[in-house]
Design a protein around this nucleic acid. Sequence first.
DNA 1: AAATTTCATGATCCATAGATCATAATGTCA
DNA 2: TGACATTATGATCTATGGATCATGAAATTT
Lengths: 83, 83
Amino acid sequence: MKNLARTPNDIGHAIRQARKAKKLTQKELAERSGVWQETISKVENGLSDTKLETVFDIFAALDLEIQVQGRSKGSSESFADIF
Amino acid sequence: MKNLARTPNDIGHAIRQARKAKKLTQKELAERSGVWQETISKVENGLSDTKLETVFDIFAALDLEIQVQGRSKGSSESFADIF
DNA sequence: AAATTTCATGATCCATAGATCATAATGTCA
DNA sequence: TGACATTATGATCTATGGATCATGAAATTT
């Protein structure tokens, strides 16, 4: 399960997926990340040009991290394409 | 070379490193990414809470992508710690 | 060392992110 | 179906990101 991300939308998808995997509601995630539920909703749906700080706050709460890497030579599919 | 990132600062470092690796000046990167040189400077130095869109614009120009993953069990070192 | 290039910083302006509150829409389940 | 939980949306307000221009500080080159 590799979650490649090349757009804010991809990040939103990754977050939603991770949150669901941990069986958390947006509200719960909001509480432990310090980010509002409303904001999380918008981020997951790509409805706002989120700030880095916010994403990382959410990532921390979900125990996620990011790895920056050169674009995979072969597949050019972005995370969103998988869904 | 694993570029783990858990903070906006880590992203800045990763960008600077990738840019240098490609032997680009901030100005050149600015041109091909559509992001201002001044902004790139601030991002690389972690002087602004950059928006996701901006980071991805820069990533695209540097042919970078992101992989979202669970936090590495063993090492807890963030990208910044390597430097 | 002087000139040139590269990078940093400071100010202004406009757009928008996120906090916050209220509420609507959707989903779930007894 | 009706109640309750979850998610989405909409408005307002404040703070700040990024465009833009100007210029200062560093680094590099000749």
